[in-house]
């Protein structure tokens, strides 16, 4: 067997055909980095989800970043008050595209039990939300389920149609 033939044989075993969309979505889905951004009670269940028992690392999301510029996923965990809303929006804008948002808990979804003068009635009033995880606070399993749903959503996206590659 000549060298050329050997190389050809090797290539046959090591080259896979796929689509850009599929490999892109696979990469994106498996390495989403959330921003460490806890607002209230739900933040603690988020920490529990990252800890040993529930282990967010199984889904490639354990690399929690402290700065929005390195993060892909914002888990809005807790009550967003009117005073905090501008900072939430600012953090969202500082994140680089593509970015996703999970609204965790009743407060982030709709204000929850706090129908008061100081609470924003749902974070979707200021930023777009991909997945809603209900509960007060949701169990860590519920957050994991929400993240898996988000991964399914990412698998369906196409490079051709996602907004961040469109011409302005």
């Amino acid at each position: 067997m000549t060298d050329d033939e050997r190389i050809a044989e090797e290539l046959k075993r090591n080259i896979f055909l796929t689509t850009v969309d599929r490999i892109y979505d696979w990469c994106r889905r498996g390495s989403m980095w959330p921003i460490s951004f806890g607002l209230a009670c739900c933040a603690f269940e988020m920490i529990c989800a990252a800890a040993a028992r529930f282990d967010l690392a199984r889904f490639g999301m354990e690399a929690v970043r402290a700065t929005p510029r390195q993060a892909d996923l914002m888990i809005v965990a807790g009550t967003v008050t009117h005073k905090m809303a501008p900072q939430v929006l600012r953090l969202y804008r500082q994140m680089a595209e593509p970015k996703y948002v999970i609204a965790m808990g009743a407060c982030a979804i709709s204000g929850g039990t706090f129908r008061s003068y100081s609470v924003l009635q749902g974070v979707d009033k200021i930023i777009p939300v991909d997945v809603y995880v209900p509960g007060c606070p949701p169990r860590p399993e519920a957050l994991l389920h929400g993240i898996i749903k988000l991964q399914e959503k990412i698998e369906r996206q196409s490079v051709r149609t996602v907004p961040w590659y469109r011409k302005a």
Partner: peptide
Amino acid sequence: GYLHRGMEKLAETRTYLQNMP
């Protein structure tokens, strides 16, 4: 005040037991 949820005011509109949560 970034997490001021107005609990003390909310509590005045609810019954005693509803304030437990």
